[in-house]
Amino acid sequence: MKKAGIDPKILGVVLVLLILPAWEAIRIGGSISPLLMPPLVSIGSALLQGLIQGTLLVQIGLSLMYILTGAGIALVLAFFTLWISNLSPAVHHAVGILGALFHPLPGIVLLPIIILWAGIGPSAVLVVIVHSVFWPVLTNLQAGYRSIPETWRMTGQNYELAGWKFLVFIALPATFPYLLAGLRIAWARGWRALISAEMLFGAIAGAGGLGWYIHSRRVFMDSPGLFAGILVIMLIGSLVESMMFSLIERRTIQKWGMSL
């Protein structure tokens, strides 16, 4: 018997509609202090106030700018490393060993050392993001490169594609599903690393990012603002995942009929 499929979109809406009254029910039913569980109305108005009067938009922009810059640097580095590791098996193994050692390290663990070496400025935050993005992207790129179908390689040879032409017309489309999977992991890791780094460093430049927003709400005991900041982080995280990555996936690998 075929199970009736539930539309994930409807399920999502239903879930949110269940969570909201549950929040209010717990809050009112347990007569819980608004400092521990602020009413939804005050969270909403804190969010609006932050967006309209406050610097929340600037802070969101700053955070996104950091992550894009960091991810860009990491991507270039990963492609470069892929290229040099294909030059000789020794380099390939060396990169593999380094990856095994560094990939499992959460960026936040490196923070104390990064503070010592790169200080507490934007460069330190970029180092954390680059570290978080670089390893998953590289590992996936390598896996993708290894799995380029032999027929594709041969087709490329038939057309006498070599060097950059081989990379652009054969290797890139072939590894794209892997690259996208790597970027997804990288986004999740980088986003978390960025927020943690901002919360620890304090203002990095000017208004500081979303992490600083949450930190400053916390120190002023503004619980609704604190929850508003958490909401924004959740929203941006899932928007990027469900809008940006899904869109790219539909336009590319699904269209090409090669999703993993």
Partner: peptide, 17 residues
């Protein structure tokens, strides 16, 4: 399950107060 969860969470948080 939701009712149970609400009950559980309220006792937990009320304990904090």
């Amino acid at each position: 399950l939701t009712v149970l969860l609400i009950f559980f969470l309220s006792t937990l948080l009320a304990g904090c107060q």
